[in-house]
Measured scan of single mutants.
Amino acid sequence: DEETLERIAKELKEKGWTLIVNGKLITDAREALKWLLEEEERR
């Protein structure tokens, strides 16, 4: 759910983690959240 996604995005940002999505590096939590939401919609 959205709360979980926001928590994940926040944790990613705090830890300075990066996500690699389709070979693209995502360092911004907002971008990561946007991607996660798009993935949820596809299901």
Rank of each mutant, 00 (worst) to 15 (best):
residue 1 D to N: 10
residue 1 D to W: 15
residue 1 D to T: 13
residue 1 D to R: 11
residue 1 D to P: 11
residue 2 E to F: 11
residue 2 E to I: 13
residue 2 E to N: 09
residue 2 E to Q: 11
residue 2 E to C: 15
residue 3 E to R: 10
residue 3 E to L: 15
residue 3 E to A: 13
residue 3 E to T: 11
residue 4 T to F: 14
residue 4 T to K: 06
residue 4 T to R: 13
residue 4 T to E: 06
residue 5 L to T: 01
residue 5 L to H: 01
residue 5 L to Q: 02
residue 5 L to M: 05
residue 5 L to G: 01
residue 5 L to E: 04
residue 6 E to R: 13
residue 6 E to Q: 09
residue 6 E to K: 08
residue 6 E to C: 15
residue 6 E to V: 08
residue 7 R to H: 05
residue 7 R to L: 11
residue 7 R to V: 04
residue 7 R to F: 09
residue 7 R to M: 13
residue 7 R to D: 05
residue 7 R to P: 01
residue 7 R to I: 08
residue 8 I to F: 09
residue 8 I to H: 02
residue 8 I to K: 00
residue 8 I to Y: 03
residue 8 I to P: 01
residue 9 A to M: 15
residue 9 A to Y: 14
residue 9 A to S: 06
residue 9 A to V: 14
residue 9 A to E: 12
residue 9 A to K: 09
residue 10 K to W: 10
residue 10 K to T: 07
residue 10 K to P: 00
residue 11 E to S: 06
residue 11 E to R: 10
residue 11 E to M: 15
residue 11 E to N: 05
residue 11 E to V: 11
residue 12 L to Y: 05
residue 12 L to D: 01
residue 12 L to Q: 00
residue 12 L to P: 00
residue 12 L to K: 00
residue 12 L to G: 01
residue 13 K to R: 12
residue 13 K to P: 00
residue 13 K to V: 15
residue 13 K to M: 15
residue 13 K to Q: 14
residue 13 K to Y: 10
residue 14 E to H: 03
residue 14 E to G: 02
residue 14 E to K: 06
residue 14 E to M: 05
residue 15 K to D: 03
residue 15 K to I: 04
residue 15 K to M: 11
residue 15 K to S: 04
residue 16 G to L: 10
residue 16 G to E: 03
residue 16 G to T: 09
residue 16 G to A: 08
residue 17 W to G: 11
residue 17 W to P: 01
residue 17 W to T: 01
residue 18 T to F: 07
residue 18 T to S: 08
residue 19 L to Q: 02
residue 19 L to D: 01
residue 19 L to N: 00
residue 20 I to E: 04
residue 20 I to Y: 05
residue 20 I to T: 04
residue 20 I to P: 01
residue 21 V to I: 14
residue 21 V to M: 06
residue 21 V to G: 07
residue 21 V to S: 05
residue 22 N to S: 08
residue 22 N to K: 03
residue 22 N to P: 04
residue 22 N to G: 11
residue 22 N to W: 09
residue 23 G to L: 11
residue 23 G to N: 05
residue 23 G to M: 04
residue 23 G to Y: 04
residue 24 K to I: 13
residue 24 K to V: 08
residue 24 K to W: 13
residue 24 K to P: 04
residue 24 K to T: 11
residue 24 K to H: 12
residue 24 K to Q: 12
residue 25 L to A: 03
residue 25 L to Q: 10
residue 26 I to G: 01
residue 26 I to E: 03
residue 26 I to M: 02
residue 26 I to A: 03
residue 27 T to E: 10
residue 27 T to D: 07
residue 27 T to Q: 09
residue 27 T to F: 10
residue 27 T to V: 07
residue 27 T to I: 07
residue 28 D to C: 06
residue 28 D to K: 02
residue 28 D to N: 09
residue 28 D to A: 09
residue 28 D to W: 14
residue 29 A to Y: 13
residue 29 A to K: 02
residue 29 A to W: 15
residue 29 A to H: 05
residue 29 A to S: 04
residue 29 A to I: 15
residue 30 R to N: 09
residue 30 R to H: 08
residue 30 R to V: 13
residue 30 R to F: 13
residue 30 R to Y: 14
residue 30 R to K: 10
residue 31 E to D: 06
residue 31 E to C: 06
residue 31 E to G: 03
residue 31 E to Y: 03
residue 31 E to K: 04
residue 32 A to N: 00
residue 32 A to D: 00
residue 32 A to L: 14
residue 32 A to K: 02
residue 33 L to R: 01
residue 33 L to S: 00
residue 33 L to E: 01
residue 33 L to T: 01
residue 33 L to N: 00
residue 33 L to Q: 01
residue 34 K to G: 05
residue 34 K to C: 15
residue 35 W to M: 05
residue 35 W to Y: 10
residue 35 W to N: 01
residue 36 L to A: 03
residue 36 L to M: 07
residue 36 L to W: 08
residue 36 L to N: 00
residue 36 L to P: 00
residue 36 L to F: 08
residue 37 L to E: 02
residue 37 L to T: 03
residue 37 L to R: 11
residue 38 E to Y: 10
residue 38 E to T: 04
residue 38 E to W: 10
residue 38 E to G: 06
residue 38 E to F: 10
residue 38 E to K: 06
residue 38 E to V: 04
residue 39 E to L: 12
residue 39 E to M: 13
residue 39 E to P: 05
residue 39 E to T: 07
residue 39 E to H: 10
residue 40 E to V: 15
residue 40 E to M: 14
residue 40 E to G: 09
residue 40 E to F: 14
residue 40 E to S: 10
residue 40 E to P: 04
residue 41 E to A: 14
residue 41 E to H: 12
residue 41 E to S: 12
residue 42 R to D: 05
residue 42 R to Y: 05
residue 42 R to C: 11
residue 42 R to K: 09
residue 42 R to V: 09
residue 43 R to Y: 07
residue 43 R to S: 10
residue 43 R to T: 05
residue 43 R to L: 11
residue 43 R to Q: 12
